[in-house]
Each structure stands twice: as structure tokens, then as C-alpha cells.
Amino acid sequence: MEKALIVKELVKSYGSLTAVNHLSFEVDNGEIFGLLGHNGAGKTTSIECILGVKRADSGSALIFGKDPKKDRRRVFEKVGVQFQQTNYQDKIRVDEICQVTASLYREPADWEILLDTFGLTEMKRKMVAELSGGERQRLSVLLALIPKPELVFLDELTTGLDAKAHRDVWRYLEGLKKQGLTIILTSHYMDEVNILCDRICILKKGETIFQGTVAEAVEGSPFDHLEEAYLWYSGEEAYADENL
């Protein structure tokens, strides 16, 4: 079977700033892969280049052996995407955006069940614009799962969620993983990464600083916990920025 994702030597710069520098990694089927790094490290740019939303300067990305730019319609039949920031049509209701999303795929998931799983059933008839930050976040993850994907990209999946919602989403994703779903996610929460990710890649200003399992990341650092190890890899001066 084809690998879920193969990224080779991806480069993307904006003017003189190199946002992603020779990024290479592979993701196996059924794996959860975490792309980590501070804001501006190049996570979102990497994902957008992989998906073909942004044009990479060089390098390649193959999703299940196919180029998403050339084979867009076939690739995205079975790939779900949650962007970091999701905008919706004005005055659209929750059930309407779910219906529209489901209508785009040949064999979509039952979105009413997904609404229930994500605790949004009561919001069904509400305008998306009226949802709270956490509800919107859950909705954006839910929409990425409507294609019944084999691979899903989740860019900051739990930002803005409360503790309980965090755990609910994690549990749900772990369940999907058991059914064979491959997940590529970005996150700022190391407890989330610790629980979910099989392997991680830490980016710093577009450069790959570390790639391997969570255990290897901790081992390779002078620390005992992923959080500290991560901060050590990604550099303390960036840590200070993050808190501004």
C-alpha cells in the first residue's frame, strides 16, 4: 500500500525569508504525525504547500502516491483538512455547512452523528457566526472528518477548547486511529502531542530540528518531559516570544 504522505525536500520562501527549508518526512498509514514548532516556525506553510494550496518553490509532496495539485479531485475525495483559521459563508447555519460539505463527497460520513459526537447537536440550527470559539473549533475538526477520510490534516486542532473538550476530541481521534485513520497535526500542547503522536517533527524557522518518536525526542534532550525537551529543541528565545 502507498504511504499516506511522502514529503521530499520541500522549500518555500517569501522574499528573503525562507519559511520552509528542505523539509522531508514520510507518514505511514495509520500513524499520527505531529508537526511542531513555535508560531512562525513554518508549520502552516508546510501543510499548505503539501496540500497544494500554496506553490512550493521546490520539492514534492505525494499523498497516497498522488500529487494533490495535479490529481486534486481524487486526492481530496479521501483527505480531510482543517485549516488553522476557517471562515464560513455569511449567515450560514451549522446544519447547512455540514450538508454542503457532505454533498461534495461520494461517500460522506453521517454528519448528524458527528454533530452528536462533538456535542454540537443543539447548535444544529444556529448560525455558525453565533458559535463560541470552542464550538467553532469543534465544528472545523468535524467538517474535516465528513469525507470519511483515510488521511486528515488538523492544523491546531484543539486551540481554544476547554479541558473536557480537549479530552473528548483526543479520545475520538484515537478511536479513528484504531480504525486506520492517518492523522497529521500541528499543536502547541505537548500533553496532546504526548498522548496522540507516534512521531513528531520539530521545526524552527523553517529548519527541521528533530524528527522521530516522542520517546526519542525526550531521550535526545537533557530533560525528562516532552514539554521541556520541546522547548530545548526549539530554542528558549522563541519561548520568550511566545509568551508576549
Binding site: L51, G52, V53, R74, N87, Q89, L104, Y105
Partner: peptide, 17 residues
């Protein structure tokens, strides 16, 4: 407007033409 507000970007990562 759909392009400006990135709604088309969301459609881009689906099979719709």
C-alpha cells in the same frame, strides 16, 4: 468575496470543481 474570505480555499481541499 468567497475568495477573499478563504471560503474557496476550503473548497480547494475538497473534490469540488
Amino acid at each position: 468575496d468567497y475568495r477573499h474570505r478563504k471560503i474557496l480555499k476550503r473548497f480547494l481541499v475538497t473534490p469540488v470543481s
